[in-house]
Write a protein that binds this DNA or RNA. Structure first.
Lengths: 156, 156
DNA sequence: GCAGATCGTATGTTTCACAGACTATCTCAC
DNA sequence: GTGAGATAGTCTGTGAAACATACGATCTGC
């Protein structure tokens, strides 16, 4: 059986699709601080259940030093707020402002349209299957706390 | 129908899986110049059918100025060679050296193992389905020459 | 032979991620 | 209580990477 003709292709394809996503989403999200990354952070904040910046960073796979100025810029844009946690004053709880929620609602629709366009080569059932497989593959990279810990990573 | 609970998730999941791939592949490919990117370039070179650096860059979605020093380093590592195209002396045809082919053969196996580990949450049939859907989605982003041209990109 | 386009290269700028140090605060032992 | 160590968040510096721009070499068309 030939071994060279069925080369993996998974890695390049993954990165290519990711870059394409960054391209189309970046065009939509140019008003959001830090583009797609800030948008994903805002989405996670709205989804809630993030006691601290550190947990938020762990869930998104972002370094905590990056998370600091990422949230700085989301705050100055009026999309989120830092709230001091009274029970542990080291922690900053991040919550979305009404403006942040409204902005998210508007952008979510357009981003979803762009995503559909990105998967244009697949029919509707296949897109749903792809989303499902992708979601489950990623969830396998998380520990019980939802933190990312892929093999070779430092955390696990 | 609730609109906030089925947020897209495709973008973050895509980027997360891509970053995880870069993490595990980068650990394997730390001896290859420019890590995964150099490896993908080498793989494309071995696959052949790339008349010039520019076409190669277009296929991989890499800027041509980046491609220059990427190939520079692959050449100094002894993995590829620049051949002058006699019919058009502006073009440089990139071919793999025997050492490049051998290196590729060794690394391909390990990278594939890492990929399987990355998709560990899926069973075998699902992994194959995921690879297939991903490959087809990406092929939809290419024009007739194989160049990447996702919506919003400059080229199309 | 000349004008314009194309391939590859070189240069400068900007952005970005990551490591390390630092402050403030919490937890636990005693 | 008090002190040692751990943790959350911030700040600073460094290095890598992408991108635009400009340039020399070569091809194509007239």
């Amino acid at each position: 059986m030939g071994s060279a003709d069925n080369v993996t292709e998974l890695g390049p394809a993954l990165l290519t699709l990711g870059r394409a996503y960054l391209g189309v989403a970046g065009a939509i999200l140019d008003k959001v601080p830090h583009g797609p990354r800030g948008y994903h952070t805002l989405a996670a904040v709205i989804r809630g259940d993030h006691p601290s910046q550190l947990v938020l960073a762990g869930r998104l796979g972002i370094d905590r030093t990056v998370m600091t100025y990422l949230i700085d810029d989301l705050v100055t844009a009026g999309l989120v707020e830092r709230q001091l946690n009274p029970t542990d004053r080291r922690q900053r709880r991040i919550v979305a402002t009404p403006q942040g929620i409204q902005t998210m609602a508007e952008l979510d629709r357009r981003v979803r349209e762009a995503e559909e366009e990105l998967l244009g080569a697949l029919d509707l059932d296949e897109r749903e299957a792809f989303r499902d497989l992708l979601r489950r593959a990623v969830s396998g990279l998380r520990d019980s706390d939802g933190r990312l810990c892929y093999p070779g990573g430092d955390g696990c």
